[in-house]
Write a protein that binds this DNA or RNA. Structure first.
Lengths: 114, 114
DNA sequence: GCATAGTACATTGTATTGCTATGTATATGG
DNA sequence: CCATATACATAGCAATACAATGTACTATGC
């Protein structure tokens, strides 16, 4: 098996948890609805989030109180469910940033040593 | 539920996949056995790897041809199984470094914007 | 009118994988 | 002897990314 195949299997695993972090980062900039969020994430990180990944994840964030939701209907178009980050979400995000920063510097050290 | 509790649940998810990357990074510096590897990872990254996590993971890496193993017996002490990175492992590691770097810069951009 | 593509949300089932718990065996210090 | 540390290993559980599928509305071209 080539390394490409291995990477292909690894990347989704690598993303686990990371997606939650990325979504909260994006939500920090303002409320957004699911479909737009998927497009934004792809634009910003080149990560293609499947809808079967995104919606359950957003529901988990809501269940845990990190986001709230609000339906918005317009005269035209399908109703959109907007997600907004809560105080708890912002608190959590701050801690995630710390974990990310620490992990990054550890890994950077290991890369340097090699 | 407080943000600490949420982070506690998030961190293991965040590590998924990352562990493989960290292990290959360490192995790049030379062969090492499982028990020592766990201690090294904790020292380098503050990540406490449970043995029930580490050994299955090392076996996966072996199954996929990223590492080879060799038993080494000494006059005293328990025999140790040394893990050595293969060419395929080094190839894979290079690609993982790229993914890591790209992801990091994307996230950095999102952090900046906020 | 109507077909096609796009927008928007949602669920089910599967595979992967980190972790807890547990087990085996050897070595060492009190 | 008995606790602790070293060293490897497996079984079962829980979390989660993803593919596949479904519903419903809108926009565009013909």
């Amino acid at each position: 098996m080539g390394s490409d195949k291995i990477i292909e299997r690894w990347v989704p695993q690598f993303r686990k948890g990371l997606l939650e972090f990325i979504i909260l980062l994006k939500l920090q900039q303002g409320a957004i609805y699911g479909y737009e969020l998927a497009i934004e994430i792809k634009k910003l990180t080149s990560i293609e989030v499947a809808e079967g990944t995104l919606y359950p994840l957003l529901n988990r964030l809501k269940r845990d109180g990190l986001v709230t939701t609000e339906w918005q209907t317009a005269e035209v178009g399908t109703p959109r469910k907007y997600y907004k980050i809560t105080t708890l979400g912002l608190e959590t995000l701050t801690k995630m940033k710390t974990v990310w920063t620490n992990t990054h510097s550890s890994i950077l050290n290991m890369v340097m040593q090699s």
